[in-house]
Design a binder for these strands. Structure first.
Length: 968
DNA sequence: CGGGAATGTAC
DNA sequence: TGTACATTCCC
């Protein structure tokens, strides 16, 4: 009667019993319309079958089974009050007869699992001939003391493998095609595991049943637990036969969960409950009253059933000789299975932060992009843990419900950090918490609190404090080596041109200003100051009368002039005047020192008066709206002359920018080398963590980048510095898909490719993969010793290769797989000049958008050196090129078909030999020829099954035969 | 397979 | 009419 089949295709320990085919296939179907439910189940076709099938079902009273520990626990936690109440009620009522009280207001679960196997139920509810005698079964030890309250089965069901915690429930309309199955919690790609139970303490054959239950009630769930069986989804319950020789293990394989649509919840639930009751009652028809009560109960349950959470119920039965099913163990329930797609139960994840840093003071606006959350049920937790993983600090971000945007973004304000006076950045973590189930996002994202000082005092320290120190040194007592040049420069004569002087002498080398200046500017410095002054005056606005003495000038300068521009020009003019005067009387060391101090003070004073921006003269001179080379270089000259390097070195404005930042922002590369020579630090990070190089990259000012990188050997550029977005300049270049920029950076310092960003832990290679930028990918792979980059894992624990597999990123994946496979460092510049045109023409024919990685040709023309390769490399390039062409060929149906036709033609060498066979021979695949009947087979082999070597060889052979490029 | 988006429905 | 959530559809 029962049909059996092995879930595991015959070799598994258990057999699947399809015991209610009919009822289950229609169980959830929408065809099962509301109206069909009005039928009395007793007369519905499904039930008829059920009845026939289980006509002899017997539920013998298992006298006196006190609950197993598991059982007890279960009920203790879930409905113990009811259980006892119900049981005693049944006992005391004594006249229940056929009627089970299904309307017990106490609890929705009148028909709980627990109680349905209680002898009292059976005693009163199933007075069928078979039941009346209820012989104690041989396998169940009867140690009743108090019927109905203490049940005990000796046999015990044990869950050996829980189901996964999260699983996508699918609607019925989604059930075509194969989707994932409900795996065990320990399941991996290989080996897979499945929910599994073991029946212990029992001898003889038994059946283990698995069905879908609600999580809060001991009642079936309206969703369907289905197993795919020849085109049909068979609904729960699912029964598996177990026996001693199989170790009593039941593994439930290949199950899916169907999300019952709202409108069918009631119907499905009612149906399940009816079926269940009928089964328990030994298959007799239900009385009208029973049905009525079932309806009411179902209505209640359906109203607030958790549709996103289910659990599995496992039961064990013994099939008696008369084909009655006797429970032999207390039912057990799996952990909850959550609907992966629901915002209420799905995984929490922070996809991205708007910025990875904030002030210790808190209240910074932070935007989190997140996976589906519900605004009423989400928190953002900031926390800090010590080495032992103990939480030492936590705070929640502030936001309102309306700050949760469309379930996918949260705009919140950072909490203040516990210690507002930290000296260094503090690394903390951020996670999402869903209060309803205490689910957390994983992994936590790093966030850095920046010291108050970093913002405020960087401003003060760098600008003001350096000024302060200089003014406080007013006594003239040198406290700093800069201030006491042992030798006063003797060249301070008007006739001495700037380019005779050297700067950066500390470096033990000489940089001639000449070298640094653009051709066009050189003779500027030859003009004397008064001429120069004339030149700059019109640009800066009129100078005040030069009647000020040095003593009173500062008041006048700082004074009331309304425009900042004007003030600047006043200061400049004053400084220049001093400069000129000093140069004329340069012999006096004392005078030089005094003058130097005077200049410095003016410089400082000017910046301090720029209360808004804190810009220094240097900043202003560099960043004028209209670039004024003469003025700027004059400024450099002054600073150099007076040895004011420390001013240039670390003076930053309110934004934390030094002169280099400004130059890069304004795209004025000609200032970069002079500034570097003046010790303006290239590694200084402004208030958002950007170095000047970051700025140049961000603005894509190539010339600036170049100037930087060519700054000279003594300039120690640190390419590993990360800005507040957690990115190095290289990372930014990749994000911006700037091959040219990235190349310059990598050429300058290869080691910088190993740096991971602090945003998501990706390194340059990861990022190139994400950008799907093959050129960049190759560029990075080309760097020597890329092993580290290849194996580095990002925050999500993925290597670049794994990352490339994640998405539709075929090209990158293939390249990476190749590289990983044979640890061959592919040359990055892979397209030799001689094939460029060909590439261009053939790729032009490809649909452009499907070819985002199509090489950008300008890159190659811009970088002629990259295509200059040794012969050896050229070979490799050929190979790569051929591989790539072949790939294109195989992927393009039109061309593929053409090639098939072409190769089916007879060989030119031998009319009896088709071209494809010739090809196979030449590419050393003659042993495989028997596999194919024509060229198509061979091409498919090459496309999908060939080894790398075969593929390569085939590509080269095809190329040699001139067949690699086929045009439409 | 999973991810994502379009479409539908109820407030 | 707009929003959130449900359902279906699609790659």
């Amino acid at each position: 009667m029962n049909q059996y089949f092995d879930l595991d295709q015959g070799k598994n320990v258990v057999a699947y019993v399809n015991n209610n085919d009919c009822s289950s296939t229609s169980g959830y179907s929408s065809a099962n319309s509301p109206t069909s439910m009005t039928h009395s189940p007793a007369h519905s076709p499904e039930t008829m079958v059920l009845q026939n099938e289980f006509a002899n079902l017997n539920l013998p009273a298992i006298s006196s089974n006190s609950p197993s520990p598991q059982h007890q626990l279960q009920h203790h936690m879930q409905n113990s009050p009811y259980h006892t109440t119900q049981a005693s009620q049944l006992l005391t009522n004594g006249n229940l007869g056929m009627d089970i009280d299904v309307s017990n207001p106490n609890n929705n679960s009148n028909l709980t699992f627990g109680n349905m196997y209680m002898p009292v139920d059976h005693f009163y509810a199933t007075p069928s001939p078979q039941s009346v005698g209820f012989p104690t079964t041989t396998n169940v030890v009867d140690n009743v003391t108090n019927m109905g309250i203490k049940n005990e089965y000796t046999a015990v069901l044990h869950i050996a493998e829980q189901p996964v915690e999260k699983f996508r429930f699918r609607y019925k309309s989604e059930m075509h095609g194969t989707h994932g199955s409900l795996n065990g919690i320990n399941s991996k790609r290989t080996p897979k595991t499945f929910p599994e139970v073991i029946l212990r303490n029992y001898k003889g054959p038994a059946v283990i049943r698995c069905s879908l239950f609600q999580t809060n009630l001991d009642s079936p769930h309206s969703h369907q637990l289905v197993v795919r069986k020849d085109e049909h989804d068979v609904c729960d319950p699912h029964d598996l036969h177990v026996s001693q020789d199989r170790g009593y293990v039941a593994q439930f394989i290949n199950m899916g969960i169907i999300h019952t649509a709202k409108k069918y919840i009631f119907d499905e639930l009612l149906k399940k409950k009816k079926d269940r009751l009928v089964f328990q009652l030994g298959r007799r028809e239900l009385s009208t009253k029973q049905i009525q009560e079932l309806h009411q109960e179902t209505e209640r349950e359906a109203k607030d059933m958790n549709l996103n959470q289910v659990r599995l119920c496992f039961e064990a039965f013994k099939i008696e000789e008369n084909n009655t099913w006797t429970p032999i163990a207390a039912p057990v329930f799996s952990n909850a299975i959550n609907n992966r797609k629901s915002a209420q139960t799905g995984e929490l994840r922070i996809v991205r932060l708007s910025k990875p840093t904030g002030s210790v003071m808190g209240n910074d606006e932070l935007i989190l992009l997140v996976e589906k959350v519900s605004k009423k049920n989400i928190k953002v937790r900031f926390f800090e843990e010590n080495e032992d993983g103990e939480t030492v600090w936590e705070q929640y971000a502030k936001f309102r419900e309306s700050d949760v945007h469309h379930q996918y973004a949260i705009v919140c304000q950072t909490p203040a950090y516990s210690d507002k006076d930290v000296e260094k950045e503090v690394a903390v973590s951020i996670e999402l918490i869903r209060p309803s189930d205490d689910e957390r996002s994983f992994p936590p994202l790093p966030f850095r609190y920046k010291p108050r000082d970093a913002i405020v005092s960087r401003k003060r320290r760098r600008t003001c404090s350096s000024f302060n120190s200089s003014s406080s040194s007013g006594g003239g007592s040198g406290h700093n080596s800069f201030e006491l040049p042992k030798t006063v420069p003797q060249q301070g004569l008007p006739s001495v041109s700037f380019h005779d002087q050297t700067i950066s002498q500390e470096f033990g080398r000489e940089i001639h200003v000449d070298d640094l200046l653009p051709e066009s500017c050189r003779n500027i410095l030859k003009v004397n100051t008064s001429e120069l002054e004339k030149l700059c005056v019109p640009m800066l606005g009129m100078l005040e009368n030069d009647g000020h003495s040095q003593a009173d000038s500062s008041a006048a300068l700082a004074g009331t002039s309304s425009s900042g521009q004007n003030r600047t020009s006043n200061y400049l003019s004053e400084i220049f005047k001093i400069f000129d005067a000093t140069r004329r009387t340069s012999d006096d060391e004392q005078l030089f020192k005094a003058t130097r101090k005077r200049v410095k003070d003016l410089f400082t004073e000017h910046a301090l008066n720029n209360t808004e921006s804190n810009d220094t003269l240097l900043h202003e001179v560099i960043s004028q709206r209209k670039d004024n080379l003469k003025l700027a270089f004059k400024m450099f000259q002054v600073m150099n002359y007076f040895k004011l390097h420390e001013l240039a070195n670390n003076v930053s404005n309110a934004e934390g920018d030094n002169g280099l930042h400004v130059a890069c922002q304004q795209n004025r590369p000609h200032y970069i080398r002079p500034l570097l020579a003046l010790d303006c630090s290239p590694n200084q990070q402004n208030h958002i963590g950007n170095t000047a190089l970051h700025v140049a990259v961000k603005e894509e000012h190539l010339n600036c980048i170049e100037s930087f990188l060519n700054g000279g050997q003594n300039i120690k550029l640190d390419l590993t510095l990360k800005n507040d977005d957690g990115l190095t300049p290289l990372h930014m270049a990749i994000t911006q898909n700037r091959y040219d920029v990235a190349k310059k950076l990598i050429d300058h310092d290869r080691s910088s490719i190993n740096v991971t960003n602090t945003k998501d832990g990706n390194n340059a290679l990861h990022m190139a993969v994400l950008e799907q930028n093959l050129e960049l990918l190759m560029l990075i792979l080309d760097a020597q010793d890329v092993t580290d980059v290849l194996v580095a894992k990002n925050a999500a624990g993925l290597t670049p290769l794994e990352l490339s597999r994640g998405r539709d990123n075929d090209k990158c994946r293939r390249v990476l797989e190749q590289v990983y496979a044979d640890k061959l460092n592919l040359p990055m510049t892979w397209i030799p000049v001689n094939v460029k045109e060909e590439m261009e023409s053939s790729s032009a024919e490809d649909d452009e958008e499907s070819n985002p990685e199509a090489p950008t040709m300008e890159i190659k023309t811009e970088e002629p050196e990259m295509v200059v390769k040794t012969e050896e490399t050229a070979m490799e390039l050929d190979e790569i090129y051929a591989n790539r062409q072949l790939e294109k060929l195989l992927n393009n149906k039109t061309r593929f078909d053409k090639l098939v036709t072409l190769l089916n033609e007879p060989s030119s060498r031998n009319a009896k030999l088709p071209k494809w066979k010739e090809l196979a021979e030449k590419s050393s695949m003659n042993q495989l020829i028997f596999l194919w009947s024509n060229s198509e087979g061979m091409l498919n082999y090459i496309h999908y099954k060939s080894s790398k070597a075969e593929y390569k060889s085939f590509a080269l052979t095809l190329q040699a035969m001139g067949l690699l490029t086929i045009h439409d």
